[in-house]
Design a protein around this nucleic acid. Structure first.
Lengths: 228, 228
DNA sequence: GCAAAAGTGTTTCCCCTACACCCATGG
DNA sequence: CCATGGGTGTAGGGGAAACACTTTTGC
């Protein structure tokens, strides 16, 4: 049994890129330029090169689509139904990524194809099994945001507590009590209060904070569990 | 860009099969019959057929190794380092499975190769990147057992509460208070008390229970969260 | 001075934890 | 009768949830 004797599925990555809109959670979709599903919206993705790890392929796709080199990214699940691609057997490893739109001013569409941010609650029909992939990603995000500090990845480095609270409310999908939220998040001791404040707002300017990654890693190693 | 123009990685599945020993958690390992890593222990696995889903390939491997047709199984993670297999580019989708040893009397080694149950705390060196895969599986199991009712999968259909408690203690790795454990698990209302009792024990026979899957699914749909 | 969001404490209640003794059964 | 695990209740503490008003700032 030599490993080259077997016909092989093609291997791709697909990326679910979440971003934060004004008052909604968004996902980056691309319009398919070719058949199959020409003209339909799809998740950005592409083939895994024979000399590149799957993670590297996902990073490459993320950068191609957004121009951002380092963002939070995590493998989601591998989809391998026999008929998920009409062209033949294609197995896809899905990744989800979180990006801060306001800081980077992401310009989708720098590539040849059209790309747009869509509200997660109003997605168009998607090509292939991408609706299933997207739903899997959203479910994972909702589950994970409560017990891992990934909400910060959607915000700029410096943020106000109300922004952070809005992130959680958008993802979890229910309102949180302001005082209890602040108490809880501050009591973890994982936020560094900055000397600066919000600028250009027409009301009292909020204190800005940043997430203390080093401290989180230390606490995590000691058995601390993040939880909202 | 036609999908057949790309050189493709080979695609395999690897299975981490957990079973419950007398007083320990065990994993099924096979001894490699061929190079590379001939004679070393490895996770059972094999190639994904071009006409079979990845899940089906994993199920097939599980059945080949254990003779059991339906056991709890879940995709774990996909491992795709470029040099993880010295024969060439091989991407492996790992699955973990939970099996109840006492009920099925699993006979590893029915196949041509040697297979044995090993205590998870005393594993030999493994072939390929299988130590990494195994550690990923164990971490997942430890994390998941607390908030999904998968502990039951390691037990026979009818079990005593003390058996269930032992499962949790083994996986989580710390002792639990008997009264609190019983209170919590019974208060969820997910166990059906059976009219029968343990047999053949030289002390007071324990009540037997079974897990109420239908009720769990119903509660889950209503937003209920299992948690130990 | 008004609109809009920032910021702040206290009480109540429930759940988690800690903890020790009697009971049933087989040998 | 003894060894082995089965089975049970309560008190205290801590964290989660509920809840409303004052402060700051720009216009």
């Amino acid at each position: 049994m030599y490993i080259y004797d077997y016909p092989r599925p093609a291997l791709t990555v697909d990326c679910i890129i979440f971003g934060l809109g004004e008052n909604s959670l968004k996902v980056l979709l691309v319009e398919r330029a070719d058949e199959p599903f020409k003209g339909m919206w799809a998740l950005p993705g592409g083939f895994v090169d024979i000399n590149e790890t799957i993670d590297a392929a996902a990073r490459r796709e993320l950068e191609e689509e957004t121009g951002i080199q380092s963002m939070f990214m995590e493998q989601l699940y591998t989809f391998g139904d026999v008929h998920r691609d009409p062209r033949g057997r294609v197995v896809s490893v899905a990744y989800y990524a979180l990006v801060n739109l306001s800081e980077y001013n992401v310009q989708p569409g720098s590539d040849a194809h059209r790309a747009e941010w869509h509200e997660v609650s109003q997605l168009p029909p998607l090509a292939f099994d991408h609706t299933l992939i997207f739903e899997t990603a959203l479910k994972r995000l909702k589950g994970k945001v409560r017990y891992q500090p990934i909400g910060f990845e959607l915000l700029p480095e410096k943020f106000a507590l109300s922004q952070l609270q809005r992130v959680y409310e958008l993802i979890i999908g229910k309102e949180l009590d302001k005082r209890n939220f602040r108490k809880k998040i501050l009591s973890m001791g994982l936020l560094i209060e900055l000397p600066e404040r919000q600028k250009g707002v027409s009301h009292r300017a909020a204190k800005l904070y940043k997430f203390d990654k080093a401290k989180y890693r230390q606490l995590e190693a000691e058995g601390f569990m993040f939880e909202i």
